[in-house]
Design a protein around this nucleic acid. Structure first.
Length: 282
DNA sequence: AGGCAGGTTCTTA
DNA sequence: TAAGAACCTGCC
């Protein structure tokens, strides 16, 4: 089917934004796995996109996944160039970025894995986890894909598999512990959903391998709490260099997380680390 | 060869 | 409570 999307929507930018690690480029489109579902989506000219799914699947699965009922253009438009020129420039450059509604459990594990690593390494480990413990499914075109392993499946992996094929390094213990807790019902993502921000943050930071940055990412990307503002080295750099007098988060409530994405992408792009651009030494 | 990469944890004042 | 070191691994 074909859909028209008027709002900010740029597949390349979303893919490179560091919130999803399983999108697979195919021609000028992407293959995306979400839960039990797989999608191939590609630009179809103007504001159109071609998706290999039914109207029902679009309405029930993919439209929510891409968070298409939220206007990111409107959120972006709240930035005033006069009062915050740097963020305004970042937002303009980041036009098209959205915050996906991904599976909370997948995000918990993915961001525990993300610590102290770069994007290619994260992708590699996530993919390996799916191969080692996920289940095989078939997409509409008859191609097979793998689901992201649930707590039960993940907790079945031993140290050697997590360290070897999955290349988790010292993080293997975190993944095993969290998976076991979840499998035993001691950690339930659906319970996090019901907690107020502060409490949710604390509950996540009770998990081994989850500190302030990872917890913020989990809440932003896994629970769609758009006001969380993960501070990593890139953001820290931006805040130090561009906002020496301080960055006014209150002004941007409740969308700090969206603006963080703009700042993050902008910072990396200017450092020559935009995901799609190759290194350019010298 | 040694440092760093989208942090967290453990150890030490 | 606050800095510093260690940690798997891959890459320059």
């Amino acid at each position: 089917m074909t859909v028209q999307i008027q709002d900010d929507f740029d597949l390349e930018k979303i893919d490179g934004s560091g919130q999803c690690f399983r999108w697979e480029r195919d021609g000028n489109g992407f293959r995306i796995v979400h839960g039990e579902h797989a999608l191939f989506i590609r630009p179809g000219g103007e504001d159109r996109y071609v998706l290999d799914c039914t109207e029902e699947e679009y309405a029930g699965i993919w439209r929510p996944y891409f968070d298409l009922d939220t206007s990111y253009a409107q959120i972006r438009g709240r930035v005033e160039p006069a009062s915050d020129p740097y963020l305004a420039a970042a937002a303009e450059a980041g036009r098209g970025i959205r915050i996906l509604r991904q599976d909370p459990w997948e995000i918990v594990i993915t961001f525990i894995i993300s610590q102290n690593r770069n994007i290619p390494m994260i992708r590699r480990s996530v993919e390996a986890l799916c191969v080692c413990a996920g289940e095989v499914r078939e997409d509409r075109a008859g191609r097979s894909f793998r689901t992201f392993p649930g707590p039960q499946q993940l907790s079945g992996l031993d140290r050697d598999t997590l360290m070897g094929p999955c290349v988790l390094g010292y993080r293997w213990k975190y993944v095993q512990d969290v998976s076991r807790r979840a499998a035993e019902g001691l950690f339930l993502p659906e319970r996090i959903s019901k907690m107020p921000d502060r409490e949710a943050m604390e509950a996540l930071m009770d998990l081994p391998g989850v500190g302030p940055k990872v917890a913020s990412c989990i809440l932003l990307f896994g629970f769609h709490r758009l006001d969380f503002f993960p501070v990593d080295v890139w953001i820290r750099r931006v805040l130090e260099e561009e906002y020496p007098q301080g960055y006014d988060r209150e002004k941007y409530t409740p969308y700090n997380g969206v603006y963080q994405q703009y700042l993050f992408a902008y910072s990396r792009a200017r450092a020559g680390r935009g995901s799609e651009m190759p290194r350019n030494p010298g």
